[in-house]
Simulated scan of single mutants.
Amino acid sequence: MDIREQLREQCSGCGVKLQHTDPQELGYLPRQAAEKGTAICQRCYRIKHYNEASDAVLNENDFLRILNEIGTTNSLVVNIIDIFDFEGSLIQGLPRFVGQNPVILAINKLDLLPKVTNVNKVINWVQHQAKQYGIRPVDVVILSAKKNLGFDYLIEAIQDHRQGRDVYVVGATNVGKSSVINRLIRDYSDLDEELTISQYPGTTLDVVKIPLERNASIIDTPGIVYHHRLTEMVHKRDLQSLLPQKPIKPAVYQLNEGQTLFFGSFARVDFVQGERQSFTIYHSNAIPIHRTKREKADELYAEHRGKMLAPPNEEGLAQLPDFSKHTLKIARGEKMDISISGLGWIKVNSDQGAIMEVQVPKGVKVSVRPSII
């Protein structure tokens, strides 16, 4: 079976095998729709046209199987990473999965960073951070799928490093992978049907092959679900508040020792010890920040969680685990960020040092890193 025959049997949105018998199973396509030439399943049609939520996701073993298969091929790997959640969306152990295949890091969502951001400094920062995880990319490209920025550089990088090979595109959920794939389809392929784009995880459920030329394809893989990201824990309707839709407007707070910031009811950050200093917050501006004294924070949270401290509301809170506490020490002389996966980051502006406590739903990844901006 050639690749085009295979594509006719697969949903071009999510990659699952099409079937016409059971509306409750994945890949269902009504026969009358198939006869009209429709190439996407009913689930993808509803996501694409009505932005309906989908509860279908692959389990971790399926992701590992697909990733491990890449290492047995001779391919170019394009890893899409969300600049808004670098640590949370980075594929842990990527070198082990891809073997000797070259890797391009495509850092998406440039449009969310403040307009004054120095892109070259961000690229240098990405290269440094990737090295800490054992990743040595052949190229790093900063782009915005939403604003159509940086794609010329990505296309050029793929052309330079592909050398006639397949191109595997990998990434976590909600990093904009399908948007990047669709741009590659427009530039590289004569395929008519684009992939399904949705804010919900689990949109792509199996590998989708898009023919490039004889014996070569772009291969889209399912988004990897990392449960340490807040975006994977929240109620579906709270996703929009967490995922910024426009450039972030950093908020600067001058804090005294013993003050607390609440990010809705998603997170609590305490300035436990240190000289008065400023902190710059990079997060979705749809989530309000409330400042209070640390001694009053427990009472405030107990009384106003899900109400004044929202989102999420009480229904959304019921879906989240209880808070877990992380104590972080920022040493003197260091310019560091406190990253909360799926929520954003806090830049510690002073080099005077600080002790911070971060409380987030249990399981959410909290880390300290050199400042990105």
Rank of each mutant, 00 (worst) to 15 (best):
K109N: 07
D206E: 15
E69S: 12
T203V: 15
P95G: 08
E69K: 12
G258Q: 05
D55G: 14
D55H: 11
P311E: 08
N59P: 11
M336F: 09
V252C: 10
S241T: 04
E315F: 08
Q10T: 04
R291N: 09
P288I: 13
A251K: 12
F262P: 00
D160I: 04
V16H: 08
G71F: 00
H49D: 03
N51P: 06
K121C: 03
K131E: 04
R186N: 11
E232N: 02
K131H: 10
R96C: 04
P102D: 01
H49R: 07
A106P: 09
F151K: 07
Y282T: 03
V169I: 15
I330L: 07
D220G: 05
N349Q: 14
I91L: 15
P30T: 04
R276K: 15
P311A: 06
K48D: 06
A297C: 09
R268Y: 11
E295K: 12
A172F: 10
K48C: 03
L58S: 00
D220Q: 07
N74C: 05
T38Q: 15
P95N: 05
Y133H: 15
V78H: 08
F263E: 03
G264I: 11
D22Y: 12
V78Y: 09
V98P: 00
Q19I: 14
E193D: 14
K293H: 01
I155K: 13
A130Y: 00
Q259Y: 01
A310P: 02
S284A: 15
R332T: 13
I158G: 02
D139M: 12
N124I: 06
L26N: 05
V252M: 10
E35K: 15
T72Y: 08
N174H: 03
N101A: 10
